[in-house]
Design a binder for these strands. Structure first.
Lengths: 161, 161
DNA sequence: TTAACTGCAAAATATTTGCAAATTA
DNA sequence: TAATTTGCAAATATTTTGCAGTTAA
């Protein structure tokens, strides 16, 4: 079965090798933000004839094609996720390293406004909140935007302060 | 004369060596976002008995002390700026690599609200807009927040899309 | 005096690349 | 078949670290 990212590759006229197909599938199925080493690990489970150099080359290619986005949540390794239909941002729990995704309409509009004020069109946005879980958590109020489940993979190294 | 950052170091009980004093001064006087190599270059002009290892150790120390903040604007090298009194964010011109700082009250409030909704207190924020200058620039409207002058140092390597 | 700091060079970490062989279109 | 892609290992690039000597407090 053709994965979503494989389809995007074909649309862009990229040559589909076995390795590239496997990497595309792994990326399509990821719901977290894996780094290259993790992608390599997952890809190698499906097809051991894949080298880490190919994974590096592939994520770079896909990033250049606008199919993937590179993230940096601290920890030294770049992490990747598929370019999303709707924008979303990240809140990183500095104690556990968990990443929570969220979306916010108001933010969207505000950033456009700020950029316009400075004479720019926004090409991409990086918005990351580093926070700490509240001791006395608020009783669940009106959640305009429900958070997606946090991912498992913890960050290596200490997060920026 | 004691630089601002040197004073902060002393307040925190750090031992003030000649090298550290010079690095503190260079950092205090920087109005841009230098990387370690650039800091080393500037420091070495004032005192050639400084090694780049010391610069690395010093920025890490100062970051741990909350005196400096680490930034990543693409290009592979971490960049540093003194922790600010008021928060501000960055807009990176993807064609020239220039960094424009801006502040925005509304953003501030909004981010607090988003974090609160998810049950977090914000410890720090990373907000970077990557944009392209408008062809037909708007006639200067009401600028609630004036931009600070863009910095000179161009980014090495291609910026994230 | 001594705990903290430094320079140097080597190590560690992450990513890129040259090249010959393999593969897709 | 031709142009692209791959694996391997070596090369790069950035940052960290061990250690012996130096220095601030």
């Amino acid at each position: 079965m053709e994965s979503r990212i494989e389809r995007l590759c074909v649309e862009r006229g990229l040559k589909m090798t076995g390795q590239r197909r496997v990497i595309a599938r792994v990326l399509s199925e990821a719901s977290d933000h894996p780094n290259v080493e993790e992608l390599y690990r997952r890809a190698a489970l499906l097809d051991s004839r894949i080298s880490i150099a190919t994974v590096y080359r592939t994520v770079r290619l896909l990033e250049e094609q606008g199919i993937l986005e590179k993230r940096d949540f601290g920890g030294g390794r770049a992490r990747y996720e598929a370019t999303e239909h709707g924008h979303h941002y990240h809140l990183i729990d500095i104690d556990t390293g968990k990443v929570i995704e969220f979306a916010d309409e108001a933010h969207e509009a505000l950033m456009q406004a700020v950029a316009a004020r400075l004479g720019f069109d926004i090409v991409s946005v990086r918005l990351e909140l580093f926070g700490r879980r509240r001791e006395a958590d608020l009783p669940a109020g009106d959640q305009a935007t429900a958070p997606r489940p946090a991912e498992e993979a913890a960050l290596q190294g200490r997060p920026p302060r």
